[in-house]
């Protein structure tokens, strides 16, 4: 089964985020005065083949811990779903 994992990597709340602060300043300068806080982060989209959803999630968690995030400074969040187009073509569904 093919899954698409979306991994969101963000600085931990206790870590100062100068890029986020700079973006907030830019938004304020544009007149978006309601903006109270901006945190910048990274977004990764990963396509992978795994037996089932649990297996896919645990593999992506391993990837995040080993490489995608640095847990000294970053947190991560994973969103996972089956990749429909690829799943159908693999399953040999109706053309």
């Amino acid at each position: 089964m093919t899954y698409r994992a979306e991994v969101f990597v963000t600085l931990k709340p206790v870590v100062n985020d100068p890029a986020g602060l700079t973006i907030r300043g830019g938004l304020h300068a544009l007149g978006f005065e309601s903006v109270k806080d901006v945190r910048a982060g990274k977004y990764l989209s990963i396509l992978l083949d795994e037996a089932d959803e649990d297996q896919a999630r645990s593999r992506v968690e391993e990837m995040a811990r080993q490489l995608l995030a640095n847990e000294v400074i970053e947190d991560f969040r994973i969103e996972l779903q089956p990749e429909p187009a690829l799943a159908e073509s693999r399953g040999g569904g109706p053309s």
């Binding site: 600085l11 870590v15 100062n16 100068p18 890029a19 700079t22 640095n70 000294v72 400074i73």
Partner: peptide, 17 residues
Amino acid sequence: LQEARLLPGALLRNASC
């Protein structure tokens, strides 16, 4: 060396960006 955990801590973007 920090990424390899041979040294402690991490190096963030400069405060000035």
